[in-house]
Design a protein around this nucleic acid. Structure first.
Lengths: 131, 131
DNA sequence: TGAATCCTTGACTCAATAAATCAAGAATAA
DNA sequence: TTATTCTTGATTTATTGAGTCAAGGATTCA
């Protein structure tokens, strides 16, 4: 998992408490720069899970219920779609018709993983460290 | 998954057929250099799953039943232990006592993944492409 | 012993990607 | 208008996996 996803999850947790907060304060709380935070949050804004407003008294606000948002949603927004079609092997053009040596085993394993992440709401996983 | 693991799995499949083969021939069949193959296979040799012998009439041979070897075994040998203790986050020192924001959710997901890979014997996953 | 064969490994290069930053710019409230 | 705040293209740095090179050790056979 990427550190960006971790930052995004911690940002969501904090927004669930502060209701609305400017990027500067939020970034300071998460110990990242405001610009970097904006970059991480932008796909979540585009997805509609977080709302942003520019100008004075602007900032970020949660626009969804963290109980209805899955960890998989956040991962896919921040890191891009999981892309079940393409294989885990790097430069391999692997398909069901011409599978790599791991195709079946890994497909099952990945399904197990994504199923678990899809079933986990963000609200259930943001109880971690506070910094 | 790494390409090294893929190469290792294909090497095991071939060794299951050829019984014993020099690295040069095996490497040619897998389309990698002998040196690179040796590097990939060395941890499997140390683990005792493959035996190697130097000198003329030497080479590699399978010293275990591919039905008793799990995909997880190979992955951990080639890529290093999955390290359930350490977190998925990069430079984070995360533990149960001081968990990161994803600790619980990811632990469950990883358990689901490793369980699947542990239950898959190498013999069941090496039916993929031949090159 | 000597030579050919074969595996092992430390050090290294290269490429791809994630992480993080900078600065210019657009939106908005007062 | 002005101060505030988010947005984003371009760039830089750090990390990691992939793959190579060359020297060296082990073993067989003549």
């Amino acid at each position: 998992m990427s550190t960006r996803t971790d930052i995004a999850l911690r940002a969501i947790r904090r927004l669930a408490e502060t209701k609305r907060e400017a990027g500067a304060g939020l970034a300071a709380a998460l110990d990242v720069t405001p610009t970097y935070l904006a970059r991480i949050l932008s796909p979540l804004v585009r997805s509609g899970w977080i709302s942003s407003k520019q100008g004075p008294s602007g900032g970020y606000a949660l626009s969804c219920d963290p109980g209805d948002l899955s960890v998989l949603d956040v991962i896919e927004a921040v890191e891009g779609p999981v892309d079940s079609g393409h294989c885990v092997l790097r430069d391999t053009n692997c398909s069901s018709a011409s599978p790599c040596s791991m195709h079946d085993a890994w497909s099952r394993a990945r399904d197990a993983l994504t199923k678990e992440l899809r079933a986990t709401p963000v609200a259930a996983c943001t109880q971690g460290r506070s910094t």
